[in-house]
Design a protein around this nucleic acid. Structure first.
Length: 279
DNA sequence: GTCTATGTTTGCGG
DNA sequence: TCCGCAAACATAGA
């Protein structure tokens, strides 16, 4: 579910709710796999008493930096959510880890599909160093992106989803960026012209920034929709040009949007605007 | 009830 | 290097 803009929205919400400076008094682990290989006893013992110094995002990870030098990395994967909830709030069966805060509130990890992970570590770099550049960072330049693309003989869609190539894009924003750049998802990265590479660079930054500005993308009205830590839906769905808009008119040329499969992933394109073999 | 798809990531085999 | 497949799970929708 959550990609870079949704994860950033959650982080913004957590900060807005005043979590920085709060202390985690204790915790309950109700589904062991959520904390990976660490034992629940060890996790609870180590996280209890930790004071939150900062909350930030890297790629699709939410990172809590504690004053002790420990860090909690949270990856929401497909269906994870972080909820701020009164400690007295009714428990839900999909809440797998509960962090009890010093202000009578909980931070609850709600994850229907149970793919999400919480990693408590002194060395977050062991996880984060595998990640590619942060697309909205000032350090991420067109020149860098062009060089990266040149070195890859892979098709653009799976490449954009590869977090070690570029961090933060998922299926929604990858499709949106490719449409924005008028590139076919099967285009081989190394064959892109310099001009189209810059188009793609700008498209990626544009769709991600718009997603953040609109507090993320929530689709439909089902229970698996994205909601932030304060349970707000995002407003970005109205900006989607292709994702899940099958048979609707392309806003650029009026052609019907099609769904194809690329790299085992559902992919949405305008067949007229995104021709293959345009480099 | 059945079948398919799902916004993610990882590991394996070819 | 790159690709396809399977798995980790639960639910929604056809």
């Amino acid at each position: 579910m959550p990609e870079l803009p949704e994860v950033q929205t959650v982080v913004n919400d957590l900060i807005h709710a005043g979590l920085i400076g709060k202390t985690i008094c204790s915790a309950d682990v109700l589904w062991n796999k959520t904390i990976g290989t660490q034992s629940p006893g060890d996790f609870v013992e180590k996280i209890s008493g930790q004071k939150i110094q900062n909350i930030r995002r890297r790629a699709k990870y939410i990172i809590f930096d504690f004053e002790s030098g420990m860090h909690l990395l949270i990856h929401l994967r497909m269906s994870g959510r972080l909820y701020i909830s009164p400690a007295s709030g009714k428990r839900n069966k999909h809440e797998h880890v509960i962090l009890h805060l010093s202000d009578n509130h909980d931070l609850r990890f709600h994850d229907t599909r149970k793919f999400g992970r919480m990693i408590l570590t002194e060395n977050p770099d062991s996880v984060l160093r595998k990640l590619g550049p942060e697309p909205l960072s000032d350090d991420f330049t067109t020149e860098q992106f062009k060089t990266l693309l040149k070195s890859k003989n892979r098709r653009l869609k799976p490449l954009l989803l590869d977090q070690s190539f570029i961090a933060g894009l998922g299926n929604i924003y990858a499709d949106e960026a490719l449409w924005e750049a008028r590139l076919h998802p099967q285009t081989v990265a190394s064959e892109l012209s310099s001009r189209k590479a810059v188009d793609l660079y700008r498209a990626i930054r544009k769709v991600l920034q718009k997603g953040i500005d609109n507090q993320g993308t929530s689709l439909g009205s089902g229970k698996s929709n994205f909601v932030s830590a304060e349970r707000q839906q995002g407003n970005n769905a109205k900006n989607l040009m292709v994702f899940r808009r099958i048979d609707q008119a392309c806003s650029c040329c009026g052609s019907k949007i099609k769904r194809i499969i690329v790299g085992q992933r559902s992919t949405h394109i305008c067949p007229k605007c995104q021709k293959n073999k345009i480099y």
